[in-house]
Design a protein around this nucleic acid. Sequence first.
DNA 1: AATTTTAGTGAACAGTGTTTACTTTTTGAA
DNA 2: TTCAAAAAGTAAACACTGTTCACTAAAATT
Lengths: 218, 218
Amino acid sequence: MTDISITPAERRRLKVRDSIIAAAERVFAEEGEAGLSIRRLAKKIDYSPAAIYKYFASKDDLVDELKDAFFDRLLTQIHRIADKETPFSARMADCLATYVKEGLSSPHHYAAAFVGTARDTGLDASHPDFAQQSKGRAFRVLMGMMAEGIELGHFRKDLDPELAAKSIWASLHGLTMMMIHIPTYPRLSADSEAPDRETFIQIHADHLVRGLESRNDS
Amino acid sequence: MTDISITPAERRRLKVRDSIIAAAERVFAEEGEAGLSIRRLAKKIDYSPAAIYKYFASKDDLVDELKDAFFDRLLTQIHRIADKETPFSARMADCLATYVKEGLSSPHHYAAAFVGTARDTGLDASHPDFAQQSKGRAFRVLMGMMAEGIELGHFRKDLDPELAAKSIWASLHGLTMMMIHIPTYPRLSADSEAPDRETFIQIHADHLVRGLESRNDS
DNA sequence: AATTTTAGTGAACAGTGTTTACTTTTTGAA
DNA sequence: TTCAAAAAGTAAACACTGTTCACTAAAATT
């Protein structure tokens, strides 16, 4: 009985823990991982640096939590579109654009979630299986839509939904990273006449969808 | 007259400088920017840490030189394909695949060249114009091929070569980053039956090209 | 009320990039 | 060849970083 409700001690602990990630979130959103230091964080919440280690095993663990929270938010946004009952084409295009835009809304979070050439965020035994992470769940939404598109005849029948989804995902990821890294993308030089970012995201999504569509129908 | 040839002093200086970047290159290729420290570098070449600052203004400057050198190599590889006189389709596909493969051959270099959400590697006044960098020159090769493809009728006539090239570039970038970040890509879970990397690069390139092609011709 | 567990801390360890004052070596000219 | 100037190289310090450890103070449990 008593273990169902939460004890005041646990409630206090959670409060401190939350204040840590809240402060971290603030710094991280503005300056990214580079600007985030345990000592700086400690000052912000008026604790000693060592105190933070009673709540997080390491800085990486803390940052991982920020990344995970971001991808949860991204997943929510994706679902908000994907679960609609609008026509397939519009839904698909909306989903692709939403992924990119959501990434751009938290560039530091997004980019940080894709760093490390190794298994630090990969899929070794220590981490949960990829499909379980919100990154993986977001991918499965895309893969589901892909299967639907093939089913409906919008996309070529010979496509493997998983491979096609991975290809599309990579392309979306690329545009997102590009726009994060080159803030003026798709403008490269000052003089070039280029559409605004939103329009370009649409163009990009159109190219991608076109590569999947079955031909010889309007 | 005397300023045409190089003095022994300058030659010595260049030798030391080269030994620094050589050592840096070795470390960077294996462990990336994380494993590279001035002090460690100094130990490797048997100099004091401060000595390195007589050759490079900062660690970032040193690392920038590594990145630039890498992109020069990448540009060379791209040109090796693009300058061939083979049929357009094959050349285009080869170019796209080569970009990705070359990126994967030096994952740390490639990924490092695309970090920083800000203008640290962007296109502010301090840096040379984007089109001048080897990153920009590589892009111009792609854009040239795009124009050629439109000219030849392979690609839709209504495409803007610059925008289309940017879209393709973003997609290539995405696949490269994905494969760097998820070493088993396109395999996500251990059980999934997926093609090898080389094949998947091809599939991805095919999707991209398909999105550009004019329709209703075989 | 006594004991055990937990929260929190100051100080230290082993690193980092970078600067400054200083010495040694090399160079170019009188 | 001698001598001033420039360049090469360094030890030590500054201001940081993540992390650990021995320790105290305060709750929680028995």
